[in-house]
């Protein structure tokens, strides 16, 4: 499945309206925000259709998994081209078997969980809370909408002299390391280690975390908590380093610009587990025929660190961060 799907779920007293645009969406947030009620409404509609008194507007089927905790695979593997909602009381969503199913699935999954899904590379931008808007008094209809829980940056307290903490030693790390004059670059050696690395940093050291937002969903809560608990941590989560290159215009390709405007229209969930994978493949495919530009995630070609291209890539990142890196 691909594309953005606009969903409306409503009764006379309640209305939910939201959009789903990637294979994995996570709903979390405060208690009593209406997560379980949304699932109940969808479940009623799924069982009884329009006779339920619940109206669901969607261009693809919306299904709720309500079955036995042992039977989920039998049920989910036969569904295709649907949005599947799973409430928080199913622990199978944390298993590798579930991650394998999602990897090759033609479905989108909406999962209610506060516990991170460490086997799945989901985006920080697809983690939502639910909020009600306006004043509400039963039985007037109460409007619920999704809001993103995390932002792609928190650079308000960006320090002048700082350490740059990157997820790994791949191309992104190599890029920053080659251009940073005043700033030290450190690798966390894996996205799961970023949080642990942050806690080792001394209070008087200033640190900026840069990680691939498209696949950092399982770790964002911990990293944001660490940043909230200390004043010396700033955060930046672009989709991925490959996205920065594609966005910079280095490739001078109009079709790529079009793709980046609405990636969801081009990314098939059964082929790509995360948008990060898609952007990497897109960059590789578009540089394959040029030996100077040929992109490799493990080793960044010099082409991307020549002054002209560095300027273009830096042009995509927030200005506050540019000042630190130069």
């Amino acid at each position: 499945m691909h594309g953005k799907h606009h969903i409306v779920v409503e009764s006379e007293n309640l209305k939910y309206e939201f959009e789903i645009r990637r294979n994995i969406t996570v709903i979390q947030g405060d208690s009593a925000s209406g997560k379980t009620t949304l699932i109940e409404l969808l479940q009623l509609h799924s069982r009884q259709g329009h006779r339920s008194g619940v109206r669901v507007e969607s261009d693809v089927p919306c299904t709720v998994y309500t079955g036995d905790a042992q039977q989920w695979l039998n049920f989910l593997q036969v569904i295709n081209n649907s949005i599947i909602f799973i409430d928080e009381d199913y622990s199978f969503v944390f298993t590798r078997e579930f991650a394998s199913l999602v990897k090759q699935s033609g479905n989108y999954y909406v999962i209610i969980t506060r516990r991170p899904l460490k086997n799945l590379p989901y985006s920080i931008q697809e983690i939502y809370g639910i909020r009600t808007s306006g004043k509400y008094h039963f039985p007037e209809q109460v409007y619920h909408e999704f809001y993103p829980v995390f932002s792609d940056k928190n650079l308000r307290k960006i320090p002048e002299k700082a350490i740059l903490l990157l997820e790994d030693q791949a191309a992104g790390y190599q890029f920053y390391r080659s251009i940073c004059k005043k700033t030290e670059c450190v690798s966390a050696e894996g996205n799961s280690n970023v949080f642990h690395k942050l806690l080792e940093i001394k209070d008087d050291q200033q640190i900026i975390v840069i990680a691939d937002g498209a696949a950092f969903g399982a770790y964002i809560n911990a990293v944001v908590r660490a940043a909230e608990s200390r004043e010396n941590i700033a955060l930046y989560f672009p989709e991925s380093f490959e996205w920065l290159i594609l966005k910079s215009g280095i490739l001078n390709n109009a079709s790529i610009e079009e793709i980046l405007q609405h990636p969801e229209n081009y990314i098939e969930s059964s082929e790509y587990l995360s948008w990060e994978q898609y952007f990497t493949e897109l960059l590789e495919a578009n540089t394959r025929d040029n030996p100077y530009m040929q992109y490799q995630k493990g080793r960044l070609p010099d082409y991307y660190t020549n002054p002209k291209n560095v300027q273009k890539i830096l042009g995509v990142i927030p200005e506050e961060l540019q000042q630190i890196i130069k």
């Binding site: 007293n13 309640l14 208690s31 009593a32 925000s33 209406g34 997560k35 379980t36 009620t37 928080e88 009600t132 509400y136 008094h137 039963f138 039985p139 109460v142």
Partner: peptide
């Protein structure tokens, strides 16, 4: 205020 009069079973999780 959202659901009207409810039984305890409908309190939040």
């Amino acid at each position: 205020p959202v659901l009207g009069p409810i039984p305890p079973e409908r309190l939040s999780g």
